[in-house]
Amino acid sequence: MTETPNPHIINADTLTGEMRPIRRVVLALGSNLGERMSMLQGAVNAIADTPDVWVTGVSPVYETEPVDAPEGSRNYLNAVVLADTTLAANRLMDRALAIEDAFERERSEVLNAPRTLDVDLIVVGDRRSNEPHLRLPHPRAAERPFVLKPWFDLEPDASLPERGPIADLLAETGLDGITLREDLTLAVE
Rank of each mutant, 00 (worst) to 15 (best):
A88Y: 11
N112S: 03
L148K: 09
N6T: 02
D84T: 08
M1V: 13
M19R: 11
L184E: 09
A43R: 00
I166C: 03
L117R: 08
A187T: 12
D68F: 05
D168S: 03
R115M: 09
D49M: 08
P66T: 00
D118F: 10
R36M: 01
A96P: 04
T14E: 15
V55D: 01
R107L: 01
M1R: 12
Y62L: 04
G42E: 05
I166Y: 06
I99P: 06
T16I: 00
D94E: 14
I47V: 15
I99C: 05
T86L: 05
A89G: 01
A187M: 09
E35R: 12
P21G: 02
A69F: 04
T56D: 07
A12S: 15
V58Q: 07
R127Y: 12
R91K: 09
E71D: 06
N75F: 10
I178F: 10
L169G: 02
M93S: 02
S159T: 14
P156R: 08
L97S: 04
I178L: 15
E71K: 11
T4W: 15
L111M: 13
Q41W: 04
R36E: 00
Y76A: 04
D118W: 12
N32E: 09
F152R: 08
P156C: 02
A113H: 01
D153K: 11
E104R: 13
T56Q: 02
E65R: 13
T4V: 14
T16N: 04
P66M: 05
V81C: 06
S38Q: 15
S59P: 01
F152S: 08
L154Q: 05
V25I: 15
P60N: 06
D157V: 03
T2I: 13
N32K: 06
L170A: 00
L40F: 02
E18Y: 08
W151C: 02
